[in-house]
Design a binder for these strands. Structure first.
Lengths: 195, 195
DNA sequence: CAACGTAACACTAACCGTTAGGGTTTTGGA
DNA sequence: TCCAAAACCCTAACGGTTAGTGTTACGTTG
């Protein structure tokens, strides 16, 4: 008793996890393209419609946790201390993100993603959404009502770092290198960026 | 002149054009989602399999001409005069590209694209390919064997301009603004960018 | 110029992701 | 206790895409 989440929500979360686990297992075992939605549903012992009530698409099964990891960026901006400069903060978060991708058991997953055009496409679309969210967060941080072109540009550049760094020989060094460029770009914004 | 290709190739090109025309007509008439591949094939009076031998996907029908317009960027870099600075050249090409999208009868098409998630996603993926090609062209232009991280970053930033400018109130001004940032980023690249 | 190889196209039938429609069980609360 | 909603199941279909198998028209070569 006294469980903040009720039994219903726990069961729902369990079902979702069961599906995600089954999917990842099958994908890594036989390859993403060789596994059908019906296979995943059968392995998780749920109906296909149930699967799609938890995940919006086949690709979403792969990016289960990754999604909220990139939300860290926008949250970090929203909650930043007033004396913390914006760009170094973003750089620090991006370092953490890239490190998370390189280490852990994440390697096979990213090899799978790189091997499937559908997954690459989905990943990029997801990043676009994150870039928009980040642009709004930056704009709000600067006291702007809506994201200006400069904000949106910087947000895109920052999000691009993830993809660029992942494909570099030394990802961490790549993050530093690209942020040198971003810092310069940010300081070149015509209207004063630090109002 | 310009008729070295035999009858067979002309017929093939005609078929391709017939399909593209039929598709665009139906899409603008009834909306992209409301028109099926089978409708397009019927309207063009070809088999569905024939349609897919000319176009890789339903989305590709929409971006028929747009694809090679962005190729202009890489070609401009490859053929640039030795005294022409790189970034202003890219800026000029980007201006032309954005102008082309704003004017002409392109407005309804872009409204259609903005209205369909599938088309937006396809467009972004197409841009990624262009960014890779542009990165290679820039690297070659600098005498590098393969595209470095800085080259790939600049290429992405440049390609991003298209999407950012299209959604700005004043697209041409947005191009100028973002290129201010890109110029600064380019000059901040650690190893000397201009040999 | 006659015959052959092949490129372009057609037809059918299916695969696969995704959704609609309609029903059953489980859960939380009145 | 009983109800409304949530979560789930099943079936059937839709729409993009592809495989398999022919058929026709072109270009080439003996």
């Amino acid at each position: 008793m006294t469980e903040p989440p009720g039994r219903r929500e726990r069961k729902k979360a369990a079902t979702r996890q069961k599906i995600a686990d089954a999917a990842l297992r099958l994908f890594l075992e036989r390859g993403y393209d060789a596994v059908g939605i019906r296979d995943v549903a059968a392995e998780a012992d749920v109906a296909v419609t149930t699967l799609f009530s938890h995940f919006a698409s086949k690709e979403a099964l792969v990016f289960e946790q990754d999604a909220d990891f990139e939300q860290r960026l926008t949250r970090a901006v929203a909650e930043r201390a007033p004396d913390e400069p914006l760009i170094p903060l973003l750089k620090r978060e991006m370092h953490a993100l890239v490190r998370h991708c390189s280490t852990e058991g994440a390697a096979p997953v990213y090899r799978m993603i790189d091997g499937s055009p559908a997954l690459r496409q989905y990943e990029e679309t997801m990043r676009l959404r994150h870039a928009e969210a980040l642009a709004s967060a930056i704009a709000a941080d600067l006291g702007q009502a809506a994201a200006t072109t400069a904000c949106r540009a910087i947000a895109r550049f920052v999000i691009d770092v993830h993809a660029l760094a992942r494909e570099a020989k030394d990802p961490q060094a790549a993050v530093d290198e690209i942020f040198e460029m971003i810092e310069a770009a940010w300081e070149a914004v015509p209207p004063p960026p630090r109002g």
